[in-house]
């Protein structure tokens, strides 16, 4: 088994554990490359099926091509999608100019909390990876959130030998991270090997391409002329830029992500 096959096998194992243990289970789906790989892995795990709904927290500031890609895929694969927005905050004019972190909290963290409560989710599958940024590097595969979605990162229970946290207090929920051990390069090599369709925004147009996708006011493309997956794999092997350097919210404060994530952010 090579390294990609090994992490694929572990992710499938994790998805099956989640499906076995949580009656109310959903998969957070951001349309980006990681979510797309995760959906692919789910279909592998369940032999062509995706036995739980996908959830998209729509900030209304997503790049339009993302929404197009989302709707096309949902139709093609006949998937069950829950779209949720914080309408109230949007009506009151929430936007990144009020502070990027404030905006993230209202348009992402809050509606995510609401979805969990509204549908009573016990398990939420997310595509975060350890190599993305510091606070994610310390995550567990199965990570508990309290009834207000808070993460007690200072006292995480042990996790070993693929025996995961499947017992928890009623009202709390578990965040499941099947891609935790994947690196950005793994994601792209896997997309290449498995021939997985991804949204066009990752490929260069007019000398620019997106490396990480988010809301258009806070996400900036990088300089690149790469127009195919092979090119991306090649490019990644030579870059010294951090993957999320085009994501403005991360740069707000040295501990921005930790602060957001301890309150329930993805």
């Amino acid at each position: 088994m090579d390294h990609l096959e090994a992490i694929e096998a572990q992710s499938i194992y994790i998805l099956r554990e989640a499906y076995k243990h949580f009656g109310k289970l959903g998969m957070l789906w951001s349309i980006g490359k990681d979510s797309t790989v995760m959906l692919w892995l789910a279909q592998k795990a369940f032999f062509g099926h995706c036995p739980f709904p996908l959830i998209h927290v729509d900030t209304s500031y997503k790049i339009p091509e993302m929404i197009e890609f989302r709707d096309k895929l949902i139709k093609e694969l006949n998937l069950n999608l829950i779209v949720h927005q914080n309408k109230e905050a949007l009506e009151q004019g929430m936007n990144p100019k009020k502070g990027r972190l404030v905006c993230c909290e209202h348009l992402k963290t809050k509606p995510l909390q609401e979805v969990v409560k509204k549908f009573g989710f016990e398990g939420l599958i997310l595509g975060v990876r350890r190599d993305e940024e510091g606070s994610r590097s310390k995550e567990r595969f199965f990570s508990e959130r309290d009834s207000e979605s808070n993460w007690d990162y200072t006292d995480q229970p042990p996790e070993l030998w693929d025996q995961f946290k499947t017992d928890f207090k009623k009202g709390n929920h578990i965040r499941i991270h099947p891609l935790l051990q994947w690196r950005e390069i793994d994601i792209w090599k896997y997309i290449q090997r498995e021939n997985i369709p991804v949204v066009d925004l990752y490929f260069a147009k007019n000398g620019k391409r997106y490396r990480s996708l988010g809301c258009y006011p806070c996400t900036f493309p990088i300089d690149s002329n790469v127009t195919d997956v092979e090119g991306i794999v090649e490019e990644l092997q030579h870059t010294t830029q951090a993957e999320r350097s085009g994501r403005a919210q991360d740069q707000e404060d040295a501990y921005a992500m930790q602060k957001l994530r301890s309150k329930g952010y993805m």
């Binding site: 229970p157 042990p158 070993l160 025996q163 946290k165 207090k169």
Partner: peptide, 10 residues
């Protein structure tokens, strides 16, 4: 194997 006590692997 692991042993679980009160929700947590212990």
């Amino acid at each position: 194997f692991v042993i679980v006590e009160d929700y947590n692997v212990s």
